[in-house]
């Protein structure tokens, strides 16, 4: 496919990238390109300038902050997450979920930063990062700010990253007394989710988020409140999920009706929580 004409720049530093994004109206960051190139083919977006982040080595690292948070650079690929010993130690669910995104070729190119900046309601990482209580570091010409996951996802293709800004890293608390789970129904094996649910349980209760049912991940707050007592028996979890579906207003499409999605939301939430409970025991 022939794309619309576009300008291309390859900054060498984050500062240069930010100044390019700020200087050109209609400029967009280019990460793995695994969504953006398709969006440009479909003319759903026609950026005037592409700012390729490929040379920004500092966005490609995975490490720990001085206070022990797992820090994942925005340009880290899914393949890198899957092979990371830091992720394996601190929060293995990230690698487990990344390993099921699309296919090998997409995982070799697609980045964590791109996955969340797209904020596609069917993308794997947004609900997961919401339950993991991740925080997002955003750099602009005015400096740096940190946004919690509950405020990062604003709408379809909309996040807290504003014009002229760059997401630089995502920080995730390491697992302590926690267990994490992720479950849902895909279109074909490793396909796009019809509905998915992510859960984290700890002594204090559970954090649960549902994907694909609204523009952004939906926290299952009532279910969380019912589980706050710390009874994670299968009966209690099933009971807690009741009414979750009815509280949602999911879309209907060729892959499932709104009612089917409501039902899947409850089933997926139960499975994700039970998986998290099981893992917490280990």
């Amino acid at each position: 496919m022939l794309l619309r004409e576009v300008d291309y720049a390859r900054p060498a530093t984050v500062e240069e990238a930010v100044s390019l994004l700020a200087a050109h109206e209609g400029a967009r960051a280019l990460a793995g390109g695994q969504t953006l190139v398709n969006v440009m083919k479909a003319r759903a977006a026609a950026p005037d300038v592409l700012v390729d982040l490929v040379d920004l080595a500092e966005l490609r690292t995975i490490g720990f902050s001085s206070d022990g948070l797992l820090e994942i650079g925005a340009m880290v690929t899914y393949t890198q997450l899957v092979g990371s010993s830091e992720v394996e130690v601190a929060r293995p669910i990230l690698a487990e979920v990344a390993a099921t995104i699309a296919d090998v070729q997409v995982r070799n190119r697609g980045t964590v930063g791109g996955n969340v900046c797209v904020s596609d309601p069917t993308n794997h990482l947004p609900p997961l990062l919401v339950v993991l209580d991740a925080s997002f570091t955003i750099r602009g010409s005015g400096g740096e700010r940190v946004v919690p996951a509950d405020e990062f996802f604003v709408g379809v293709y909309m996040t807290a990253v504003g014009e002229g800004e760059l997401l630089t890293k995502i920080s995730v608390p390491p697992a302590s007394d926690t267990g994490d789970g992720f479950s849902g129904v895909t279109i074909g094996k490793h396909g796009t989710y019809v509905v998915d649910a992510a859960a984290t349980v700890s002594g204090e209760g559970a954090r649960i988020a549902i994907g694909c049912v609204a523009a952004t991940p939906v926290r299952a707050t009532e279910m969380e409140e019912r589980l706050a007592g710390g009874d994670f028996s299968e009966d209690a979890v099933r009971e807690a999920a009741k009414g979750l579906g009815a509280s949602l207003d999911p879309p209907s499409d060729v892959h499932g009706s709104a009612d089917y999605r409501r039902s899947l939301a409850e089933t997926s939430a139960v499975r994700a929580v039970l998986q998290a409970v099981e893992r917490r025991k280990r």
Partner: peptide, 13 residues
């Protein structure tokens, strides 16, 4: 050394 879909990359990349 890694497999990618060449319809999803720009030549400049």
């Amino acid at each position: 050394g890694v497999s990618v879909k060449s319809c999803m990359l720009l030549a400049v990349q």
